[in-house]
């Protein structure tokens, strides 16, 4: 047996296999690129899968207009550095109408700026498979998610129509109008992701590293406060050493108090973390669960 066969090599090899199955089985796949650490790993693995050839699919970023400026800068530089084709799609009507979580509520805002925008982009470009960085470990409704997850003609997920997945036989058979969401990182945990980023020296957005940043505390979550538009009346920012465990929209992504300023620190922190990373995402709180959002077509 191969002595170098670590858990990271096993996960890497499985993900590469999944990427190749997607390209073999679908006409027009796309990689959903969210700029976060999981997306960084996803793209890294995709490049390994098709080396020495180029990426055989574009990257799609669904931009809500509320992403951190550091994220947009990183996205553009990163896509350029690897020579990837980057498609940025926004729900311009909703953005023009001033969609904001403080105005619409988190669920409706996400529904318009993320779910509707994603479904529209998939439709517009006629993508039949969309690969994303979701992991089963992230949230309990995802524990049963398939690697190849079938969506109907409306982009919706029906738990009863999901197919059993045996061995490594991933079935991409679909009818006209249906599509597949594919999750090559299904079996990775947050800890695996950081260990792999460290091992492979994968670039990630600097927001993951701890730094003094202005924040306000709202409902037990530390919300970044560098943009006054996202603050409620009476909220006063304070400076704290914080970092982000997950990256979403600025008004809805909580930071965590941390001094982890290097990858090594983050790996150590991820190993000892007591709270799940999705707890910093306001979208996961409230009555509309991840399961409900998934049924509607959210990633």
């Amino acid at each position: 047996m191969n002595k170098e066969w670590t858990h990271l090599r096993e996960l890497e090899s499985e993900s590469i296999y999944i990427f190749r199955e997607v390209v073999a089985q679908f006409r027009n796949p796309v990689l959903l690129y969210s700029i976060g650490k999981d997306s960084s790993v996803l793209v890294h693995l995709a490049r390994k899968a098709f080396y020495p050839g180029p990426l055989p699919f574009p990257l799609l970023h669904v931009d809500t207009g509320y992403k951190f400026p550091e994220m947009i800068k990183f996205r553009d530089e990163f896509a350029k550095s690897i020579g990837a084709r980057l498609i940025v799609h926004r729900n311009e009507d909703a953005i023009a109408a001033g969609a904001h979580p403080l105005k619409l509520g988190v669920a409706r805002c996400c529904g318009q700026l993320k779910t509707a925008a994603l479904l529209h982009a998939l439709e517009k470009y006629q993508f039949d498979a969309a690969m994303g960085g979701a992991r089963r470990e992230e949230e309990r409704s995802r524990a049963k998610e398939r690697v190849f997850s079938l969506r109907d003609a409306f982009g919706q997920w029906d738990p009863r129509r999901q197919r059993p997945e045996l061995w490594n036989l991933y079935s991409g058979a679909i009818h006209e109008g249906e599509s597949m969401r594919v999750f090559p990182l299904s079996n990775w945990t947050e800890r695996d992701i950081w260990q792999y980023i460290l091992q492979e020296k994968i670039p990630v957005v600097p927001l993951y590293f701890a730094k003094e940043r202005p924040v306000v505390e709202r409902g037990g979550t530390l919300i970044p406060a560098d943009n006054a538009l996202h603050l409620k009346d009476g909220e006063k920012p304070q400076m704290m050493s914080v970092r982000f465990r997950t990256l979403g929209c600025a008004p809805c992504t909580g930071a965590v108090a941390s001094c982890a300023a290097s990858l090594e620190d983050i790996v150590a922190e991820a190993g000892a973390a007591k709270i799940s990373e999705r707890s910093t995402r306001i979208i996961d709180h409230g009555s509309n669960t991840m399961e409900d959002k998934k049924r509607e077509g959210y990633f």
Partner: peptide, 16 residues
């Protein structure tokens, strides 16, 4: 895992 089965107190399907 799923809301449906939590409410009904049953589990269906393979969970990882």
């Amino acid at each position: 895992g799923l809301k449906a089965e939590r409410e009904q107190g049953i589990t269906i399907d393979v969970a990882y």
